[in-house]
């Protein structure tokens, strides 16, 4: 049988075999054409993303559409692989996201200032599920950034969400965005750690 894998370039972990392996993932969300694939391509080792298919849940009867989920992988150290998944888009963006988002470090929402509504459903999903995320704006002026904040705060979302500048084509910019997200996620996790009685999380510091 002819599988793609037999010819696929293999970027294995940079280290000797036998070490402990683990993996983490970050989700990249945002409207159509905003640069999610470009973002991931800028940071991964291989030249292009892989595509996985899945069937959306809760579908009775004949399946007429597969969900395609694109992703890439990069080794952060000899035992740690970081996966970056493009959040799938549906009519209802929450449908079928669970497998992709569950257990993620967090999400990067690429925000298209010309089409803010495209990001709103994703942002609401992350907030409902308490997934840490950052908003990434593509090289906009500071005044536009504050406008964006005002808009989304007016929608009742995006409070305390870091807003960062990001050019998805530039590796360093993508890296900085991922670092911002991970720092934000780490702080969020630290704030939610169990309190002295180890049953309830501590209240937010601010």
């Amino acid at each position: 049988m002819d599988y793609v894998g037999s010819r696929f370039p293999d970027f294995g972990p940079p280290g000797p075999p036998g070490r402990e392996l683990t993996s983490a993932k970050i989700v990249v969300a945002g409207g159509f054409g905003v640069g999610k694939s470009t973002f991931i391509r800028s940071i991964i080792e291989s030249s292009d993303l892989l595509t996985m298919t899945a069937l959306p849940p809760e579908r009775a009867g004949l399946v007429t559409e597969l969900v395609r989920i694109q992703f890439g992988r990069v080794w952060l150290d000899p035992g740690l692989a970081l996966h970056l998944f493009v959040a799938p888009q549906w009519q209802d963006p929450r449908a079928g996201w669970n497998d992709v988002v569950r257990g993620a470090v967090g999400a990067v929402v690429l925000f298209d200032v010309m089409r803010p509504a495209d990001s709103v459903d994703a942002m609401r999903y992350f907030e409902d599920h308490r997934i840490p995320y950052v908003l990434a704006l593509n090289n906009v002026h500071a005044s536009v950034r504050s406008d964006v904040k005002a808009i989304i705060h007016g929608m009742g979302i995006g409070r305390d969400v870091p807003v960062v500048n990001c050019d998805p084509r530039v590796r360093l910019s993508v890296r900085e965005t991922l670092i911002s997200l991970t720092e934000h996620a780490k702080l969020d996790r630290w704030r939610r750690r169990p309190g002295p009685d180890e049953t309830t999380p501590l209240a937010p510091v601010c």
Partner: peptide, 25 residues
Amino acid sequence: HQTASAGGDTPDLGLMERVLSGLRR
């Protein structure tokens, strides 16, 4: 190779720190 976040929780602080170190490099 089970992930540290097996079970659906967000990754623990140790793993996040490791991700952070790796990203910085």
